[in-house]
């Protein structure tokens, strides 16, 4: 078995473990819903049993806040705020812990798959669609796991593992190509920098997208509660308030935006070296520009009265959709100079 075959084996194993992690995270969301029901029952009936359940939940929440206080003052405050911010505080369920552990395991297998592919090819493992997808999803999970050490965003596990699983599935089935040497056009140090930073930016945008989407759900729940109307998707009550989610999404998205700005510039410098001009409105350049403009709009919207909150969240969601479009559709179906999909 050669290195590339090992890499494929490792990747399929990672996908299997991601699938189990996804199930564990999904069970956790279901548990959250029933915890919300229990809390509501307790509040309405005021029975002893309900009060006990409520007390247990509160105790769990306190425990998790205390457990999360490892970092500096600022970070502790963020995690405490996230933990205490929910309408119905909710601690760590067993399935949530299982989900995170499985994600770490899958990430390790995923990393091994990526490194083995790089070793098999004797270069960085991001020179065609299959490799972009493998490295890009690895970075999405890496960003997620790093952010987890600073803020409790484990409730996004379903989204992250689900997204990564879908992307890896498409990559393995539709984008797979054999190991091939770099064509002269890609033999540049900018391949290492430009593509890596773009993938890293995508990792942050993915997380920002998820936070903005949850923010919208939370905002809807909050409005329904304010109008004393029934809410759906009860687990949302265990998540941070929409204002906290918005602030988190903003911080994640501006890191993505800065990385994207750098991607655009590094790409221009490379384009000048390889194609003789730094900007030529190639289809991929156009879409990189469009994404940059959408996120610039998002940052402006956050500073514009009447656009904070849900409207700016929609811009972040549109922005990430454009990132996915740029990766999945423009690379494969649009004609242009970035014809390196290998397909």
């Amino acid at each position: 078995m050669n290195l590339n075959e090992l890499s494929i084996l490792s990747l399929y194993s990672a996908m299997g473990v991601y699938a189990f992690a996804f199930i564990a995270f999904a069970i956790d969301l279901a548990r959250r819903s029933s915890a919300v029901d229990a809390a509501v029952d307790a509040a309405q009936a005021g029975t002893r049993a309900g009060a006990e359940a409520g007390a247990r939940l509160a105790a769990e929440a306190t425990g998790s806040a205390a457990a999360g206080s490892g970092g500096t003052t600022t970070l502790t405050r963020i995690s405490t705020r996230i933990a205490n911010d929910a309408a119905t505080p909710y601690g760590r369920s067993a399935s949530l812990r299982v989900g995170v552990s499985l994600t770490v395991l899958a990430w390790a297998l995923h990393l091994a798959a990526d490194v083995l592919r790089g070793l098999a090819a004797g270069r960085v493992p991001w020179a065609n669609m299959y490799e972009f997808a493998m490295t890009g999803t690895l970075l999405i999970v890496t960003v997620f796991l790093i952010v987890l050490t600073r803020a409790d965003l484990r409730f996004l596990g379903t989204f992250v593992t689900g997204l990564v699983l879908i992307l890896l599935g498409i990559a393995a089935l539709r984008f797979y190509v054999e190991v091939a040497p770099l064509p002269p056009a890609l033999q540049s140090v900018w391949l290492v920098i430009h593509v890596f930073v773009a993938s890293l930016g995508t990792g942050f945008f993915a997380l920002g997208f998820a936070l903005s989407a949850v923010q919208l759900l939370q905002f809807r729940r909050e409005s329904l509660v304010a109008e004393a109307r029934a809410t759906r998707l009860r687990f949302v009550a265990t998540l941070p308030s929409s204002a906290t989610l918005e602030n988190l999404a903003y911080r994640v998205n501006i890191i993505g935006f800065i990385l994207w700005t750098f991607t655009l510039m590094a790409g221009s410098i490379w384009a000048e070296k390889a194609w003789g001009r730094y900007w030529g409105w190639d289809t991929k350049e156009v879409w990189t520009f469009i994404i940059w403009t959408i996120y610039a709009g998002y940052i402006h919207a956050r500073a514009t009265r009447g656009w904070r909150g849900s409207r700016s969240a929609w811009l972040a969601i549109i922005g990430f959709s454009a990132v996915m479009f740029n990766f999945g559709i423009v690379n494969v179906f649009f004609k242009g100079l970035h014809a390196y999909s290998g397909l």
């Binding site: 409105w281 190639d282 469009i290 403009t293 709009g297 656009w307 242009g336």
Partner: peptide
């Protein structure tokens, strides 16, 4: 105003789209 700047930014993003759907004299 901020609102106009935001509107123009988003309009610019939308206006850039057709150039990727139809071949351009400058690049192709």
């Amino acid at each position: 105003s901020m609102r106009t700047a935001l509107f123009l930014l988003l309009l610019l993003a939308i206006a850039a789209v057709p150039g990727s759907l139809v071949p351009q004299r400058s690049s192709d």
